[in-house]
Design a protein around this nucleic acid. Structure first.
Lengths: 270, 270
DNA sequence: CGATCCTTTGATATGTTTCAAGCTTAGTGG
DNA sequence: CCACTAAGCTTGAAACATATCAAAGGATCG
């Protein structure tokens, strides 16, 4: 995987000029799935043979809307995306964030009706796979189905951790936890060093991830800075003290289920 | 399925004197899975042939502990169970509730290490299936795997809804929502009329489901009663005004994914 | 029938929200 | 290249929902 040059170029440009070609992206997706379950060459070829439409989407584009039957399952090639739900009173809760290389909508695709929205966070490139093709793939290739199943289970594990975060941690911990998770996931995806990364979110979006208000998020971020745990400049976040931040956020990476192959907890050590 | 006599007998006795025999319970589990995905007779037989140990567990018994590799996957035959996580500061967040007839630990069983605890809420009867047997089953019977996959996706949908509940609804809505969900799920499982049921939880446990304190839960329950939405007597809850309660809780049953076969939203109508 | 767990209630404390305004940055078009 | 605009960030003051603390009253179980 192409090593990123460090620091400066802003997040969006990064996504625009994707270093990877399309087939490299697909290989990355396959590699990601394989960390969940061994695949045969035939399985891999079946994934490569998946019909799809390549598209570039602007930031904030809806890919799936709650209440609609999912038609396509998208693979995120570059850029970021998120799932969310909106309450009757108009409050938004962000349910999860997604990085390049992830299957975006297995959660909705295997069910009849989408129960939440999926939207791009930044400009993004996607491969849109018709759900019918996906269904055929998983029917004919049980090992792929198994890998995808496990992938969705890890998604569920992340939902659970977020539920704990929002339900039982105070505002400082919630945000610290979010920053730790994002750092580690970017690290694992080879997209950043966890000591410094571009946070592709506004403070309002951070608020919607953590069940807080944007104003309070602002104060907490400032606070975490004052405590020397992070330093910020624009949306660039540098974790100044991983030990401190992960302790503040009560962060334990177990729920990300990286045990096999990846750096996992080891990556945390300086 | 045996029709329950109405009203009086307290929850625990109900579970003790389970009307169903063991094989009836297994059939119920199969029927539940089949609502997710059609199974062949051979698939059904493979489930029936699953080796298991029958056990009765006291209330509050741990079945899986966070950090341990899951050894058994349990089918809940009678009684209730829940998943939870505990933060470093000792706060508990309940992640989900489980009713008789549900596979209890597909979430953990397919992964290497449990990331949360699973515990009985009441006294319960379970069938404990070794995970190795479960792995064999899903490898040899892709349709069963598919049904279980979808089952875990519905679990995930419930996690998401709870995340919205805890993140973006006020205390009244949260509790109203929980009461609605429980009513409908009990109804769908044929375990109660949604107008009256035994809530197998202490107010402290309700607090841990909703990210509140037990004291506040008490006040809110009293309030919901005052508003004429519910009436209570011990832990028996009667929903006096379904329309009102589901509106107060911003409750829409879509996330339970009952669309096929079951009463679903239709069950809500008086 | 004592002991324990659960529920209820009141008084007070506090974390977070709300409201409101000014400020900064990024993007756009003249 | 500057002015304009919209979006996001920052800050302060006041309000509010919920937590905390504390104690008494019920229920349940051995």
């Amino acid at each position: 995987m192409a090593e990123r040059a460090d620091a400066l170029p802003p997040f969006l440009e990064r996504s625009d000029t994707d270093f990877m070609g399309l087939s490299d992206s697909i290989e990355r997706v396959i590699r990601r799935l394989e960390t969940r379950r061994a695949l045969s060459e035939e399985d891999r070829n079946a994934i490569r043979a998946l019909p799809f439409t390549y598209r570039t989407l602007e930031a904030s584009t809806y890919m799936v809307r709650e209440g609609e039957p999912p038609q396509i399952c998208t693979i995120l090639l570059s850029g970021f995306a998120y799932r969310h739900k909106i309450t009757e009173k108009g409050a938004r809760q962000i349910l999860s964030l997604h990085l390049p290389g992830e299957f975006l909508d297995l959660q909705n695709s295997m069910l009849e009706v989408a129960d939440h929205n999926v939207q791009t966070l930044t400009r993004a490139e996607i491969a849109a796979v018709p759900v019918t093709a996906l269904h055929r793939l998983v029917t004919e290739h049980p090992a792929v189905a198994r890998a995808m199943w496990i992938d969705t289970l890890v998604d569920a594990a992340i939902f659970r951790e977020w539920l704990v975060n929002v339900g039982r941690r105070d505002s400082h911990s919630r945000i610290a936890h979010l920053l730790c998770e994002f750092a580690l996931r970017l690290e694992m995806a080879g997209l950043a060093s966890h000591y410094r990364y571009e946070l592709p979110m506004t403070q309002e979006q951070i608020a919607d991830c953590t069940g807080l208000t944007p104003v309070h998020v602002n104060r907490v971020l400032k606070d975490l800075g004052r405590q020397g745990l992070i330093s910020r400049e624009r949306r660039s976040v540098a974790i100044a003290n991983w030990e401190g931040l992960s302790h503040a956020g009560d962060f334990n990476s177990r729920y990300l289920h990286y045990e096999e192959g990846g750096p996992g907890e080891a990556a945390l050590a300086s």
